[in-house]
């Protein structure tokens, strides 16, 4: 009963009002703001983690993709190198063949030229011999023939012939 004497209604009501006032003030300044902020931060951290995980997954996917592409590029480059080697071999073969054919044609042409020149020279020689023979014969017929003169004519003819031969050689 002594305890009941310690109670005063006015004080109880005032303390209730005081507590409710504090609750209202804290609801505005602390609970609403700070709890929302904590929730927001929690959600943000979770979303950032999710983003990081997504980015890691994307990087992993890209890595696999690049590995595949790299392997494809390597195979392609190998094929191209092989193709270039083959092409080079073919071109060199063709060049060699062309050079061989050209050399043969030059040789043939040279041979032909030589033969032509020889034929021409032979023909000219023959013409010269004929001319010489005719000239000598004409001289013999125009002049009085004597023993020394005949010898001289024959000797001149032979010299001429030697000269012609020497010039042809």
């Amino acid at each position: 009963m002594d305890l009941l004497k310690l109670l005063t209604t006015n004080e109880i009501v005032a303390q209730i009002i005081s507590f409710l006032l504090l609750m209202a003030l804290l609801r505005v300044f602390a609970w609403k703001k700070l709890l929302n902020l904590l929730d927001e931060r929690r959600a943000r951290i979770a979303s950032e983690f999710k983003k990081i995980e997504d980015a890691q997954a994307a990087i992993e996917r890209m890595r696999v993709d690049y590995d595949k592409k790299l392997a494809g590029i390597e195979a392609e480059s190998r094929a191209r190198i092989q193709e270039a080697i083959n092409e080079g071999k073919q071109v060199s073969q063709e060049i060699r063949e062309n050079a061989r054919q050209e050399a043969r044609s030059i040789l043939d042409k040279a041979q032909e030229n030589i033969e032509n020149e020889l034929t021409k020279a032979k023909h000219e020689l023959k013409q010269r011999v004929v001319e010489l023979t005719l000239g000598t014969t004409e001289k013999l017929l125009k002049e009085k023939i004597s023993g020394d003169k005949d010898k001289q004519l024959a000797s001149d003819f032979l010299d001429e012939l030697e000269k012609v031969k020497g010039g042809e050689g």
Binding site: L6, L7, T8, I12, A14, Q15
Partner: peptide, 10 residues
């Protein structure tokens, strides 16, 4: 006691 009774009443 009035303070604690007030809180307990709340």
């Amino acid at each position: 006691l009035s303070t604690t009774v007030a809180l307990a009443l709340c």
